[in-house]
Design a binder for these strands. Structure first.
Lengths: 119, 119
DNA sequence: CTCTTGCTTGAACAACTGTTCAACTGTAAT
DNA sequence: ATTACAGTTGAACAGTTGTTCAAGCAAGAG
């Protein structure tokens, strides 16, 4: 990110205009970073599986692990990430902790992507 | 993924039903994997930046690098990934290679996520 | 209190990812 | 043919990520 100062396309002017336009239209770095960060959360099949499972309704950690054939620890670790990113919310009830989707957006995003994948 | 065979919630029946229901409603593993795979592509700020840049129109590698202040090599590597996942398409014109979004879906997905991030 | 169960957490480790660097290909101009 | 430029590619490296394991915490039962 430092030694390409002189690497302009030296061919023609149209490029300069194009570059200028693109730079102006570009979202701010922070927003792009946040968007990528959001996608990163969805970019793991364990997490998407957990989210898909929770779209059927509230469920405790142990049952999620059972449904997905994962260790309780692995599920808990991923739920922590989902929790911190406000994609799921937790509700303690005695010894159990029930998790559910914190937002309808989540379902929508998943559905859209699923459609896209299925073509 | 092997020593949690006996880790059922041993409290009550409702859980069993819940588990059964969730298992039935769950998308097949392959679809979930593909969805996660798609999100993984979007889950890197360099790639989302490239896609956002290309949403302004066709552009050559050198110019993308210029807009985003990245090395040509780094951009090329990421474009390769985007190309293989059919998110962008390439068009050679003399010495230059122009890239563009291969699908309006891409823009839509990015826009939706951006809205979500901006709350 | 102690014991058990449901869940969480930190450390360790392996697997993966993105960038850089250097070498290379393809195209056009001299 | 030689040179220059636009872009690609493979290897190497550092940084990140997800799982497992073991230890711990919280809450109800005895």
């Amino acid at each position: 990110m430092k030694e390409h100062e002189n690497e302009f396309c030296e061919i023609n002017a149209p490029h300069e205009e194009s570059v200028k336009k693109a730079k102006a239209a570009l979202l701010d770095t922070e927003t792009l970073y946040d968007v990528a960060e959001l996608f990163k959360i969805f970019g793991d099949s364990t997490r998407t599986s957990i989210l898909a499972t929770l779209s059927a309704g509230e469920m405790c950690v142990c049952d999620i692990a059972e449904v997905l054939n994962l260790s309780v620890s692995a599920v808990s670790h991923q739920l922590r990430i989902l929790r911190h990113n406000k994609l799921v919310k937790a509700r303690r009830c005695g010894k159990e902790v029930f998790y559910s989707l914190s937002d309808d957006h989540v379902v929508k995003i998943l559905e859209t992507a699923t459609e896209h994948v299925k073509e």
